[in-house]
Design a protein around this nucleic acid. Structure first.
Lengths: 114, 114
DNA sequence: ACAATAAGTCAAAAAAAGATGACTACTCCT
DNA sequence: AGGAGTAGTCATCTTTTTTTGACTTATTGT
């Protein structure tokens, strides 16, 4: 028997909790940019023109607490802070990619039928 | 080269769109209950005591439009409507299960370190 | 000393999502 | 004809999320 997706006959399945890893308007974008290398606060702000400090700050903090990103203080010339993807973060991105693939796959299927 | 998770150097990655398949407070629960067989509107309301008609109605409609559920009118004695999981719906549930597994896996890792 | 950049915080306003309760339409049973 | 069950819709209110803009702290460059 496979791992149960949730405990049955009962409200509030574990998946709801897992989804918090991806919740909010900016996490997917932060993941995206982080796949190209460590990201920084002000740099994110510039790369996501319609995002705001507050929301990014909260998203980064949540992702750090969920161990998806690691916050690293780089003691160097200008002294800055980098957020690095963790292994767990990479796994979550894979999940995101799978979701994306399902969408694409089933678009193709629909096309074949029509 | 692997399928790019998003188009780079640019805001609003495709993943954000895919996440809409899972967005909202009740979809994960609907998925859950649907794995045990077709679900019905009033039955869901009873099984999810803190959910409300409006939200369930919207969630079901979105899931139907995304082809995750199929709405079937059962012409029989009491005449009712069933929502059946589609293949695509099952794939999305697998993704949810993967996310859940990542969480569990990394909880275990953290435990091993501590 | 002054201006600039990095990395934020905070309170308040606006927008989006969710909840409530009343109401509709159809069928079945008596 | 009246009552109950199924499957909803609709307008409104409340709660949660996001945005805005002003302010903070520390370091570097001139």
């Amino acid at each position: 028997m496979t791992t149960p997706f949730i405990a049955h006959s009962w409200e509030e399945c574990p998946a709801i909790n897992s989804l918090k890893l991806l919740s909010g308007k900016w996490k997917a974008n932060i993941f995206l940019l982080a796949t190209f290398g460590p990201v920084r606060f002000n740099s994110l702000l510039r790369q996501l023109p319609s995002a705001n400090k507050q929301s990014l700050s909260i998203a980064l903090k949540e992702m750090e607490q969920a161990a998806l990103l690691e916050r690293i203080v780089v003691k160097q010339k200008p002294l800055h802070i980098e957020y690095h993807l963790t292994e767990k973060g990479r796994s979550v991105i894979d999940v995101l990619q799978n979701l994306e693939n399902i969408k694409i796959q089933h678009l193709a299927d629909a096309g074949r039928i029509a």
